[in-house]
Amino acid sequence: MKLIFHIWRQRDRGSPGRMVRYEKDGLNPDMSMLEALDVLNEDLTIKGEDPVVFEHDCREGICGSCGFMINGVAHGPLLKTTVCQLTLRHFENGQELYLEPWRAKAFPILRDLMVDRSAFDRIIASGGYISTPTGSAPDGNVIPISKEAAERAMDAAACIGCGACVAACPNASASLFTGAKISHLGLLPQGQPERASRALRMVARMNEEGFGQCTNIGECEAVCPKGIRLEVISRMNHDFLKASWAARQPATD
């Protein structure tokens, strides 16, 4: 099968970029989108052109490395699927595909479809953890956790940090990502001691990184490959407001 790609090419962070058109024939509907780009890159390499840079690693939808916009939708048209698992059978022969990198001030483009998502790491570093130095843990069964709480925490913890939520959001908000971690830890008894300071610190860090606000429109939820729900944002708002309202402010620094 044949596809016509329009791909954002940008040499490095400082350079201007543009969309470049590539026609690629001889593709197989069982290929993944990334395999199609592999094949395109083999051609470009042989022709002496620079291959398209895109991020990828596990290619089974769990590492969160890959991701770009396909025709204006983060990770493309198939729900709950990262581009590494998106097979070409979901496209038509001869279809034109516009591939663009995630765009957000907090995700500067490094090259072509590759962006810098280290802002996510800094959000986690600001409080997305439970402080448990190695060796200090009590027996795993000391604190019972209801099956429901564990399942809901797992729902939120399934986030792979790919950044599709930011990319799809008209405001480039990182609320789904941040809310997912706040919810995951806040739903567990172990996460309670730091719950207030975690919300204050992570929300503040998210803002400092230059992400936009959440307007509850739900684009993030729609494109999230792991099905993280808007509920996590509500939980983040709840924890943040409650912590802000509290008479004694928890230490945030």
Binding site: I130, T132, T134, G140, A153, L185, L188, Q190
Partner: peptide, 8 residues
């Protein structure tokens, strides 16, 4: 250790 860290 992992339970204490919040592994669900």
């Amino acid at each position: 250790q992992c339970v204490a860290q919040g592994v669900p």
